[in-house]
Design a protein around this nucleic acid. Sequence first.
DNA 1: CTCTCCCGCCACCCG
DNA 2: CGGGTGGCGGGAGAG
Length: 908
Amino acid sequence: MVPWREKASCARWERMEVNCLTLKDLINPRQARLGFAIEDGENAQKENIFVDRSRMTPKTPIKNEPIDLSKQKLFTPERNPITPVKLVDRQQSEPWTPTANLKMLISAASPDIRDREKKKGLFRPIENKDDAFADALQIDVVVDSAMDDYEKQRPSRKQKSLGLLCQKFLARYPSYPLSTERTTISLDEVAVSLGVERRRIYDIVNVLESLHLVSRVAKNQYGWHGRHSLPKTLRALQRLGEKQKYEEQMACLQQKELDLIGYKFGERRRDGYPDSHDQQLLEFAESDYPSSSANSRKDKSLRIMSQKFVMLFLVSKTKIVTLDVAAKILIEESQDTPDHSKFKTKVRRLYDIANVLTSLALIKKVHVTEERGRKPAFKWIGPVDFNSNEEELVDLPASVLPELKPETYGQIRACAKQRLARYGSFNTVPTAEKIQRKVSSEPNSPCRKQGSGGYSLEIGSLAAMYRQKIEKSSQGKVSANKRVVPPASSMDPALPVHSLAHQVFSAAQTDVQALSMQNSLSGQSCVPLPSATSDPESLKAALLAGQPLMYVPSTSLLMLCGNLQEGPSPGSGSEKDDKNLQVPAASDLSLQPSGQKRLCEERKPLEEDEPATKRQSQEFEDSPLSLVMPKKPSDFTDLAFPMTMGSRGSVPLEGIPVKEEPPGEEAPGKSAASAFIASECGTPSNYEKPARENESAQESSLLQYLYVHSPAGLNGFNVLLPGSQTPHTMGPSSSQLPSFGLPCMVLPSPALGPFPVLYSPAMPGPIPSAPGVLPSTGPVSFGLPAIGSVAHLLVSPAAMIDTPVSTVPSTDPQLHGQHSLTLSPVMSRSHTVVHPESPGYTGHPVSVKLEQSPIPVTPKSIQRRHRETFFKTPGSLGDPIVRRRERNQTRNTTSAQRRLEIPSSGPD
DNA sequence: CTCTCCCGCCACCCG
DNA sequence: CGGGTGGCGGGAGAG
């Protein structure tokens, strides 16, 4: 539209390049590490993705809020070629956030910049950009100059990609907006905010509209719906796709490809899809756009294409669609005269769509390798198991999410009991099997149609050949699709913690899925579970997308708890890793790099035969696992804290209220089960009847959380397991927490990025070491800093955003002691400090912390240089990094902006 | 070279 | 008509 806009945009991009890069990383933190046959990593190759994280600079986190254009003039290169302060911030400040980036962009949208650009007729060669940037990161002194140079650089295409733009766009709105909030999107405003011309916004909006994430309400205005109805939409698309027999079409085309029979334009296949195809699609699309004036137009090509594209994934057994196949199908359906030009155009559009879908974490770029070379393709990583009940559930307002029905808990409880009764222990629950059964019994289960879909990968014969090829080059991909459920038996306490973490996570996924299917939780929570693929990546992606995934506490986790506790116990077989498991005992939970490496290496042998798989596994392993287990309030008599299950024979987690619960007398599993049931059902129950309890009791009913932070492995997954939580630790918003009624939640790091909450609170001294400090029976102070924020966060990104961390009551001194008050970094003492870049860093530091010690955790002095490294590693968010909170002062001053730091070398 | 896909011209609608 | 939309494909960055 207006030329200057574009120019301004360019200028902004120049300045924002770093930020943009980071943004991308948030989305695809670790792709570079993945090695799929269907190379997924090509993210590294993808233009939009900036692979070299080592050059990334920590972004200045900015409060994630609507962009304030008034700030645009703040940074004008011309006037302030080098803003020391600004540069400094960039260097060491917090992790960048999409919003921050957005702000930055906006800030750059000043006339000055335009001028600058003009003056800047010549840009510095992009080739030098990286180097300059790297230098800037290396030396603070050089930062200014480096940045200066950097700023002169022209933004590369990467930074201007639709994908990034879409991410920024999405960052503006909550994934799951409250039903009460009506978010209107003004295309003009957005365009200005994002610094792009409106045309680009149309591209994004059209795709989003095709998925019903937005809808046109008026000219230049769209309404934001969020992902609430995404499952429903996807399901509808899936059905449509099935009707259209897309699968067959794809199979046909793929077969041709495989047979090296080049596709010939004009070679139209009429079998499979009815002529009414488009009409059906339109109907589908329009059904939800009653107010859309655009419906009358037959110009919804992009929307239609988007839907069709999605359909292809949904009906595909492999969940992988190559662009050429998609383009061909689309061309055929459009009944256009197939020609190369058309094909090219289609592919272009598909890329546009793919970029948006990727931003939505629904698909990811991969490459399918064939004899004739690699072919660009995308893999569906979004939800797959659209619950049959979604219709009734998806539309539930986000505000209702937390309020799971009592029945749900009942189901959960029943499930738990069932498992217990059937297997005697949660540790041996064959979830996969169960799921399988469930799936097959689900008449409308898409998974069923897919031959169990991701639960047990059953690549159709159609894709057999394809698969073989894939497997040859990389088995990882295939394995990634498989439902890999660590056999309960494999949940051997002897395994290294990180291994356990991996297993637990996998199992957890299974559990989630199982529960989802059985209880329709996914639907109720409006949280599309990350697809049946169970691919960690998928889950990650989904989470990254900002989906508030509510995770029902799984026995796996409980088991983990048990294992953790049992680790130290004699005969556990995990002696070598005991030290790592001795959460409480170890004065310093930090794993030494060497130790980590060793652990990692030890695991490798097991995965030798599957390189890709190994890598994937490593991702998990690489992630430091931090478990913060809040003590159960002492008054929570009916609840057995999960940790108690494994306390027998091991160092009992001090402070864990085992009150009235014979700790570990029974079979661990049973004990755990009890705890599991109690915690899951009891809490909700309490929530349901808050009135009956005194305030104290009520508070005690608050969910406790077990926080699992495994950046690297889980790529940013943060798992909060409910335990009991000291009400005091929660901020004002804590009240919302109970409302969730969810035992556990898995939070996407990205979403939590700016919030301290995510960072596991320090688990000051080992329980044993600080027995006196905290009454063993006393409530465990759940050190999640700003838990209140968490609550908000969980509720909705938007809410979260607006929650001023600083306002959150640090904690109740009584209960939390300084630790809480200071919101000290997680690890001041017990957490693992691993320097991602350190040579020895290959394993996953695992730090399990029991936050119960009132011992104040004093953040260690952090050196800036250390901080710099924070974002240097790939998947910065997910890497095993310990996020620390700055000093108290910092906290106060920049409450919203949490600093994440990674000690370059262990704790100093 | 191929893959990507930005960019913006210009044709459609619609009020 | 003018402005909102968005199809479309040239052409260039990235690998």
